[in-house]
Design a protein around this nucleic acid. Structure first.
Lengths: 349, 349
DNA sequence: TATTAGCACTCATTTATTTCGAGTGCTAAC
DNA sequence: GTTAGCACTCGAAATAAATGAGTGCTAATA
């Protein structure tokens, strides 16, 4: 992604100035403003010429004749990729240690979303880690009463799954014990995508289990392990979008907020993010680039965090295209590190 | 709550007409409209006189001079209490059987919220049942690895709680067994508000347990049992409020939707509802009557459902004051019955 | 006494008209 | 290559006028 050859040094400076100014004010920026805003001592007329060029190249455009210029998606892209300078530190002290360690992953994530929203003034989301090639740590069946068995499964990262299995008849204590033994000895430590239905079937055979009930229970267990629908998504600050006029007309607001309530779309976003990880785990989707159609008028910035044995989750913020990318990326990185750290991973970078 | 003596039969008819018309159109209704809308053959002038009286009595008011009349909160109240006629049936067939039984309570409730929203075009919420005087059905501690124990507790209604307890040292198998025995024999079948910290303390003594670790574990168990914060609230259709101009200016929309995202306020609402149950479990809060300040410009209608052994939850809808109370109450009743029925309770009424 | 026709008046809403100014593109001079 | 200067565009804001639904009151009517 080399910089367009037709972009002189000066054009870059001007483009950068336009974008920065626009990020600050939210108003189209005109040539006059730029003469003051930049160091290069040029008249507005000269700037105008340059701006005309930049417009031809597609980096900026006018919302209407006789208005100043606004960055296009392409302009933002260039900015994020090349022009933006990291503004280090500054928030770090305030932010470190905001998350308190607790065994309830859920709580930490909820809090993370909140912190993120409070720090950025955008809408945020945090997905619970998805047990991709997660390992099974412990499994146990217990008889609750005559007709119910509760299955408890602990995965790496201390994710706990459970389900009540209805059995027609009482399982003998002995059988239950055998089952538990069998399950733990064979499955323990395996990654859950190794535990296929086929494996279970073979297991049944090898163990010489013929009882219908037992078979049924085993099938149920296999099912529980694989149920993926427990990717939770925590959101916060969805209503922050009301702070940005370009997103807060009824139409847009409705759509975006719906997406935050239904969560399906956010889940898609997470999936996408996890699939195409790169760039230190930080991804920036500008406008049309986003995988979620509803957010065509927004920018979406996401990061991936890890907690324990290959479990990955996503944190992300959604805001107007003229968002403060530097601050957002910085904050995201900080939080990402904190999440990684809270469950003892090496911080990135 | 006897009807105001100064309200003649005719005034009631007119008031009812005003409200019904306003519910339909959302526009202030004038005297002219009413001459057509009602049976009584009166001129607009006469109606105007009556309207003036109704306004003096506080049942209606004008948003501004030279506009028609709008029902006041007091007006709505009278309407809901006395004027409204039940429009039976109609939706019932469509709605019955919308919920499919599954062991995941969570799924049913999520779905309930959705169904409700789809059927009413208002914002809806469903709270997970709160284990009030719920009983403990089963409890079990299992050693996950050297330093972790997982505690699983099944309550009546098959609510499962669990938590990982970190112990500094390994607990002997024997001890664990003893503990499980102890817990199950003593606590099983007890209602959870009987299980006080004091009880646990006495239990420790009686059992002659002196090990620090075991004590620690027991305390943790007591804590888990009592943690109440797992009242989940599922919402749907929050963005429906955009359909009602009187609620969809930025200010209001922002507030209401925030309440739906944060959920704390909804939780308060649930608590309140559960506390003051009456009226077949259906409650109508009009405007200022609502316990949640954010919804002063809305009406809130809630119902209580029961599922299993005294567990109660709340379903509710939030909409503009000019909501279709009849339809809403009917739908709520239907869903309430379905929820009751799905876990085998007798339908109300 | 209750009802009604009639009329003057009010006021939100809509539409049209004007003014204002930020910003542009272009040309000609430096 | 840069700049001063100027005519032009067009959104936004302000102002004005037109519309019309609805009212309250008074005087006539049944």
């Amino acid at each position: 992604m080399a910089v367009d050859a037709s972009l002189s040094e000066r054009k870059l400076i001007i483009l950068k100035a336009i974008i920065q100014n626009y990020l600050e004010t939210g108003e189209p920026v005109g040539s006059r403003t730029l003469t003051k805003y930049t160091d290069l001592n040029l008249s507005s007329a000269t700037i105008r010429n340059e701006m005309a060029d930049l417009e031809d190249l597609g980096y900026i455009f006018q919302p209407h004749t006789s208005a100043g210029r606004i960055p296009s998606d392409k302009g933002y892209r260039l900015y994020v990729d090349m022009l933006m300078e990291d503004k280090e530190q500054e928030i770090t002290e305030r932010e470190n240690g905001l998350l308190e360690k607790t065994d309830k992953v859920e709580k930490v994530l909820r809090q993370a979303a909140k912190v993120l929203a409070a720090n950025t003034n955008y809408a945020t989301m945090v997905s619970s880690p998805v047990n991709n090639r997660n390992t099974l740590k412990f499994i146990q069946l217990s008889q609750v009463d005559a007709e119910q068995i509760v299955a408890v499964i602990v995965l790496g990262g201390n994710v706990i799954k459970n389900k009540i299995i209805e059995v027609g008849e009482t399982l003998s204590n002995e059988n239950l014990l055998k089952l538990n033994m069998l399950l733990n000895t064979t499955l323990n430590g395996m990654s859950i995508d190794q535990i296929t239905l086929g494996l279970i079937a073979r297991l049944k055979e090898q163990a010489g289990i013929h009882s219908k009930v037992v078979g049924h229970v085993l099938d149920a267990v296999a099912e529980i392990i694989h149920v993926e629908d427990d990717m939770e998504i925590y959101t916060s600050g969805a209503t922050n979008i009301f702070k940005y006029p370009e997103l807060s007309d009824k139409q847009s607001a409705q759509e975006i907020i719906s997406a935050f309530e239904e969560k399906q779309q956010l889940a898609d976003l997470v999936t996408e993010t996890l699939a195409s990880e790169n760039n230190h785990g930080i991804q920036v989707y500008i406008g049309d680039e986003t995988p979620v159609k509803t957010m065509r008028d927004c920018s979406v910035v996401t990061a991936t965090y890890e907690l324990g044995e290959g479990m990955k989750g996503t944190i992300g913020i959604i805001g107007p295209k003229r968002m403060d990318y530097e601050h957002v990326m910085k904050t995201l990185k900080t939080l990402q590190n904190e999440l990684d750290a809270i469950y003892n991973k090496d911080p990135k970078e």
